[in-house]
Design a protein around this nucleic acid. Sequence first.
DNA 1: TGCAAAAACGAACGATCGTGCTATTCTGGC
DNA 2: GCCAGAATAGCACGATCGTTCGTTTTTGCA
Lengths: 176, 176
Amino acid sequence: MSKSGVFAHFESKENLQLEVLRSAVAHFIAEVVGPALRKPRGEARVRALFENWFDWSSKASLPGGCIFIAAASEFDDQPGPVRDYLVETQKDWLATLSQAVRIAVDEGQFRSDVDAQQLAHDFYSILLAYHHFSRLLRMPAARVRAFRSFEQLIESARVRNAVPRDSHARKTGARK
Amino acid sequence: MSKSGVFAHFESKENLQLEVLRSAVAHFIAEVVGPALRKPRGEARVRALFENWFDWSSKASLPGGCIFIAAASEFDDQPGPVRDYLVETQKDWLATLSQAVRIAVDEGQFRSDVDAQQLAHDFYSILLAYHHFSRLLRMPAARVRAFRSFEQLIESARVRNAVPRDSHARKTGARK
DNA sequence: TGCAAAAACGAACGATCGTGCTATTCTGGC
DNA sequence: GCCAGAATAGCACGATCGTTCGTTTTTGCA
């Protein structure tokens, strides 16, 4: 299709960028968030969100990697509707992660003193780092690293069978 | 200075980009790595590396944020000497972090089963996430989040006063 | 099949970019 | 102060980019 051909559909480059992002969000929800929400509440859902993101971000149909991360670094200092929309989607994604964590807490799978927003932040950190490393360093170990960090975070959030050794862990989350 | 003025010094745009990165590396070593190496071996040095990076990346003289991260997402799919140099510097930085962790292990401040490369990866994840969040979301909480994640990692790597309660809880039982 | 509406194309515009070439201005040693 | 050499500026080139517009092709329907 010719340049002016696509231009007839979207009225400006900015509009096209927005539409691309909107379409990406639709795909992201269909392939990452949706399937995860169909998993049982709790750790399983958190895991699914994390793992689905990996499958999605390394799909062959995304040769440039996660489009949101790529767009983020392109538009983070470029005000306008594209940037605004990106901010919105990132907040939504973080909120989705947070909510899944909060549910895991409510379900008694994660300790009640887990800070959902903080843990969501930590999860997303791992994803961002994986993206950075795998794309720039082409490091196959990146995926292993990411999942190891993830497992460690999950482990540290899980309710323990026994009371933590150090007694001022005041929540006594040993509920299971 | 005029466009052709700067062009006379560097012979191509690519060369200028390389020179900018080289200069950035020099500054980075002078302001982040160097001061940290002057700290005592062990946790103090790891902390210094982490904290100095924060000071450096939010300096007023870097309005575009960390130039290496910015360049990474611009060049990660653009082969050439600039990309190669970026890869090199990222590996150096990770090696520096790893080495500082390894020393902390040797000094007996971090547990001997700590995976230095993995922990270095986790530290850098936090930095990358901070960069992403603070630049795109302009979220002031990002810094707090980052330091909380950092403290948690440090905590989980530290040697405990007592032997872990259940003896096969190797690196996992660590987080407070 | 014919025909109007929609879709796609091609050419061209002004702007910007990377680069080269030539002219001007600045600088230090006599 | 003068002059060689270096530093800087000005200009122009081809390429690319975002955009517009007039023309051609395709499509859906009577």
